Structures are given as structure tokens and as C-alpha cells.
Simulated scan of single mutants.
Amino acid sequence: MCGILAALGCIDVSQAKRARILELSRRLRHRGPDWSGISHHGNCFLAHQRLAIVDPTSGNQPLYNEDRTIVVTVNGEIYNHEELRKKLGSHKFRTRSDCEVIAHLYEAYGEDFVNMLDGMFSFVLVDTRDNSFIAARDAIGLQHCQSFRMGCCMV
């Protein structure tokens, strides 16, 4: 099981803040010992500790859409990712990761895409085009999604 961390709407985006986010993310290392990554966009940081199960060679996170304006960090597994990839035929995928579909689905369908996901997951997605984010998770067959404009918000 991966570990994800999001710091959103940060006032301080200094190197010291980045170092603090990395330090906090490392505390999740036991959940994902295979790889770690961090993404910084504006006033948002997304960090990931990866347990590589699907696409262990190229599925490192955070994951992006084609022009890297949508960034997502995910824990879980999307069971219907192959079917969803077919629906996204015009999109170009960098990896075979089941979770990469999330960024592309958001781009194609907006926040309603969450209802298309079949699996066990939690994720944070940042849309750098309008400085908004979505935090969502499945909750034993019941999906929950929150969408926000950036303000003074931490998830």
C-alpha cells in the first residue's frame, strides 16, 4: 500500500518547506519502499511513497496528463483501468500504471470521472490551470469526492 501526502495552498513554498514535505513523506516509507517522488506546483506539494505492483518499472508518481497541467498522487488500484484507457483513445499514456487514467479522465470528463472508477483508491489531483484540486477515495463501494479552489487549505 502506497503512502501519499498533499500540502495544498501553502503560503511558504521555500526550499525549507520542500524539505519538510520530504521529511514527512519519508515517514510513510514503510507503506511504499519501492520509490518516492515529490511534485511542486505553485503553492501545492504532492509526495508519494510507492509500493510498485502494477507497472513496477515506469509507474512512478506523481502522474501527469500529457502537458503536465494535471498532477495526481494515488494509493490503490483501479480495477477497470484497461477499459478506461480504451475510452481515452486520443490521450497519450507515459506508463502502464493503472492509476495514470485518473489524470486523463479528469481532463476528459471533469470531476464526475470519479464515478467511473472501479477499485480501491485514494488520491489527490491538482489542476494547475485553475489552481484547484480534488481529493477523493472509495469508501467500501461508496465514493466520496471533494473539489476545491485553492485557498488556505491542507489535506
Rank of each mutant, 00 (worst) to 15 (best):
N60W: 13
E100W: 04
I53A: 03
M154L: 11
F45E: 05
H48N: 11
S97R: 09
M120Y: 05
Y106T: 01
S90T: 15
I134S: 11
R129A: 04
H81E: 10
R29D: 15
R149G: 10
Q61N: 07
L142M: 13
V54M: 11
T95Y: 07
A139S: 14
R26E: 13
S25C: 05
V124H: 13
N65G: 01
R85T: 10
F113S: 02
C2E: 03
C145F: 06
G3H: 03
C99E: 00
G9Y: 09
K92A: 04
S25F: 00
H40A: 07
L51E: 02
H81V: 07
A103H: 11
A103Y: 08
K17A: 04
H104M: 01
T95K: 13
D138S: 13
G151W: 14
N115S: 15
A6G: 15
P33F: 08
R50T: 05
R29M: 10
R29A: 14
L142V: 14
N65P: 06
A135C: 12
N65E: 01
L5C: 07
R85F: 07
G9I: 06
M116W: 00
C10A: 12
M116N: 00
F45D: 00
R18T: 15
I78R: 00
G151H: 13
A16Y: 08
V71C: 15
Y109H: 06
I53R: 01
N80H: 08
L5W: 01
T57V: 12
K86T: 14
N60Q: 14
C145K: 15
I134V: 10
N131Q: 14
V71D: 00
S25W: 02
R149K: 15
A52H: 11
D127H: 06
N65Y: 03
D12H: 05
M154V: 11
V74N: 10
Q143S: 12
G3W: 04
E23K: 08
K92V: 13
V126T: 06
I21F: 03
M116Y: 08
G89D: 06
Q146P: 00
V124A: 14
D67V: 07
R31T: 00
T128Q: 04
C10G: 01
R129K: 15
G76R: 03
G151Y: 11
I53S: 05
G59S: 03
Q146N: 09
T57W: 14
G3I: 05
